[in-house]
């Protein structure tokens, strides 16, 4: 089982963590101004790279805090970025 380095708790088994998907998807600054296409992209469309991917993770069965990581979606190499 892969070990993930929680920034607060140290290395723990991946089963303790929950996946939060792509990092850095900000809520629209002016929601009322968005077109249907822009809303669709905010709600449904996320990057899906083969390779390095900036993601959100939560140590849900531990300290329950969120953090960011850059993970390689091919090798599954995990790099916590805070």
């Amino acid at each position: 089982m892969q070990l993930i380095e929680c920034p607060w708790c140290g290395p723990r088994e991946e089963a303790e963590f929950s996946y939060g998907g792509q990092a850095g998807v900000a809520y629209p600054a002016d929601p009322a101004a968005l077109s249907d296409v822009e809303w669709a992209h905010y709600v449904f469309f996320r990057d899906n790279p083969k390779g390095r991917f900036a993601e959100r993770w939560s140590h849900s069965a531990g300290c329950r805090r969120w953090f960011r990581a850059v993970r390689d979606t091919v090798t599954y190499t995990f790099e916590v970025t805070g």
């Binding site: 089982m1 089963a15 929950s18 996946y19 993601e55 993970r71 979606t73 091919v74």
Partner: peptide
């Protein structure tokens, strides 16, 4: 498996 992955393997859990 919950996370995105292009490796043709997943978690033992």
């Amino acid at each position: 498996d919950s996370y995105n992955g292009y490796g043709q393997r997943g978690a033992f859990g």
